[in-house]
Design a protein around this nucleic acid. Structure first.
Length: 128
DNA sequence: CTTCTGACA
DNA sequence: TGTCAGAA
């Protein structure tokens, strides 16, 4: 009858420290109920933390996750939420595409430099 | 012993 | 995000 989850339980459940849980709260991502000073986490808070973790895995910023979470409450139809999410995903994909492009350029240049160095090296060895 | 807030050699 | 302090 006293299944009120404390911050330690929640932290353990998601493999994060209690500091992290409070940090997310400061950022506005979580708003647990209070029993005096103690934070009490409901099933709904756990769902939110689950979404936060997923967002982190996708590389979203805490601000992006926060706006997503806000929409989740404000819009029951979830239309606004999903629309926004699509936008966030596109932005994320855009930066990833950009980084991929940069990496490919670096790799290509390094291939050229490597070949050049190896060639120079072989010349010096055959000459001396 | 656990949680809370605030601060940072 | 870690960590440490002082209080509850």
């Amino acid at each position: 009858m006293s299944e009120a989850l404390g911050i330690a339980d929640l932290a353990r459940e998601f493999d994060v420290t209690t500091r992290t849980v409070r940090f997310y709260e400061d950022k506005g991502l979580l708003a647990p109920a209070r029993e005096g000073q103690r934070r009490i986490y409901s099933a709904r808070d756990r769902v939110r933390l689950r979404l936060i973790m997923r967002g982190k895995r996708l590389g979203l910023s805490l601000d992006e996750i926060a706006s997503l979470l806000d929409l989740y409450d404000v819009d029951p139809s979830e239309v606004t939420q999903l629309t926004h999410f699509v936008g966030v995903i596109r932005d994320r994909k855009s930066v990833l595409q950009g980084q991929k492009c940069d990496i490919e350029e670096s790799l290509a240049e390094m291939d050229r430099l490597e070949a050049q160095c190896v060639k120079l090296l072989s010349e010096k060895q055959t000459t001396s």
